[in-house]
Design a protein around this nucleic acid. Structure first.
Lengths: 235, 235
DNA sequence: ACCTGAACACCGTTCAAGT
DNA sequence: ACCTGAACACCGTTCAAGT
């Protein structure tokens, strides 16, 4: 009664391929952040030397291109296939669909740490990007835009979403030239920093300190999204 | 007739301060890109050791915070003081002013290589950011928004601009699973890559290949900006 | 108060050499 | 076809020691 051939040698090395390398790179990014991704750590996961990775991939830069391509593919599956196709049966206008897709894409980016950062760092042209563009072009043209404006709108919408997530996930830091230097929580500290601003020069910012320090990000995202979509249909 | 005391010893070391360090860091970023900025190269510019930089600055991370703060300060000077104050005499509505400011801020970011990248990488709360927010809050409230919406609009507008510039300055790369692999110019290659897409799956993207490959970025930026502003006033 | 020297624990990448 | 070992030219950061 022989076991599977898989188990013949103990601690066998995992199989390697460019695809597996890219998937593992995404794992590492999501576990420890983009900064912590290195060829050496990636190689470790497969039990090989860093130099060996270069047999599968030309450079780290090239690998990040593949990572972005993969993430865009995953985004398509999550945002469009699952989210839109299924509920496409209901009779909603293209504007509602666009709205739901944008919200779903933001959720995807938030669910994959640093994905907005990698994606924003390079424009990777390929079929994954085309997969994202295709339904957007369709929806915008159904909204009455001509081809050129549909391209503009799709591009701008993706840029808005990625830019928004990038902002909301950016590490917050305080730079104050003021004397006080307490070590309270970052959020309270921020409100305090804003409250310390010169009353004469920044009356509005000071008055809005509460809104700035504890923002409702989902509704802020929706605010910008809705204004943009309203501006499109208003034309 | 003695010369200035400055010239007593030849190849004298330049004076050092946190501010000068930050300015030089910005110089280095603009000359060779954010990736090329290192504590060692920065120290070299002052004729000191890398370790000495740590007397002025807690860490590279902290220094990048200061870099962002400085860039936001420069942006304020360029975008608001020069651009808005001067022409504020003409009787234009707040919408026009916002439009001009947004265009000027994009121009500023484009003029300072990698500035969008650093600025997007961290949210540095301080008086430089407040300087940017204050006039925005004023303009949006004059447009009829309440305080909460003015904050949303200001935040979203800045995010849109930074996100847009980040996208347009992102290095372009091609990832194709197709057989053809020619080495023509990147732009022609991109149009070709788009043309090679599956006719069945991506008819709209293929049809828009020309618009995608050679986009008019200034008008694309204006397109998104105008839709957003129109959406605000339409409400 | 300001700076050095040396070290530590890392990087991406190349390349001859091994199997 | 796939992988190693060793090297090269870098990193950020710490810290005792110097002036």
């Amino acid at each position: 009664m022989p076991r599977t051939t898989q188990e013949k040698s103990s601690t066998k090395r995992s199989p390697i391929s460019t695809e597996l390398l890219v998937d593992t790179a995404i794992d590492l990014i999501e576990a420890d952040g983009l900064e912590a991704l290195s060829m050496r750590r990636l190689a470790d996961r497969f039990g090989i030397q860093a130099a060996s990775v270069y047999w599968y991939v030309a450079s780290k830069d090239h690998m990040l291109d593949l990572v972005v391509d993969r993430l865009l593919g995953l985004a398509y599956e999550n945002v469009f296939v699952e989210n839109v196709q299924q509920r496409g049966s209901e009779d909603e206008g293209p504007e509602q669909t666009l709205r739901r897709m944008a919200v779903a894409y933001r959720a995807f980016l938030l669910a994959h740490p640093d994905s907005a950062k990698v994606i924003s760092s390079r424009l990777v042209v390929g079929s994954s990007l085309a997969q994202l563009f295709e339904p957007l072009l369709d929806l915008f043209s159904r909204l009455g835009l001509d081809q050129r404006d549909s391209v503009h709108a799709s591009y701008v919408l993706l840029g808005y979403i990625q830019g928004f997530v990038l902002q909301e996930t950016a590490p917050l830091s305080l730079v104050t030239r003021s004397p006080t230097d307490d070590r309270s929580s970052t959020l309270k500290q921020m409100e305090a920093a804003l409250g310390r601003l010169d009353e004469e020069r920044f009356p509005l910012t000071r008055a809005a300190a509460a809104d700035l320090a504890k923002p409702d990000l989902p509704s802020r995202f929706a605010f910008g999204l809705d204004r943009f979509l309203a501006g499109l249909t208003a034309k």
